[in-house]
Amino acid sequence: MGYLFELLGEQSVIEPVYQEEGIGLRVDGRITDLDFKDLGGGEFIFEVEGDIYPVRIATSGDSVFIHSEGESYEILAINSLEKVVEEARGGSSSDSLIAPMPGVVIRVEKKAGDLVKRGETILVIESMKLQTVVTSFRDGLVRSILVEEGGGFEKGSVLAVLASDEIEEDQL
């Protein structure tokens, strides 16, 4: 359940971690000890691993603007990983599973010719120290897997391709 954010041209994954003492955040795979105080009017005091940062925050759409120590930053919410994967598939018009960000293949669970059900795991990838399961977005047939375990890929790479509907019917 990670969310993708972009700051200064680099993307990071943030996910909530439910702990006994409350919710923590895992940022780039690292659990971040975090506390903050809302001073009102967009002003906050953040405490991260013992350091105190007074900040000023304003949001607009997917952008979060933060002013801290005389510098201003824009952080863009790319979206939840699942949503990104979904969108990268380009809806039903495409049969390709596309990498939402650069990473490494941890495990390939299906091979070409395998029948898959919607939601079934095809492969597991790791990006930004976070594992993500890439599942099939419909019932069908795996036509090809274009990556192998341990191999790397770039953002936008095609990871696997499902057979198109016609072929699917023939085969089925």
Binding site: Y3, I14, D28, F36, F44, F46, V55, V64
Partner: peptide, 12 residues
């Protein structure tokens, strides 16, 4: 960087 990202996430 982690502080900014965390603050951004919580503001999203």
């Amino acid at each position: 960087r982690r502080m900014l990202l965390a603050a951004a996430a919580l503001s999203n």
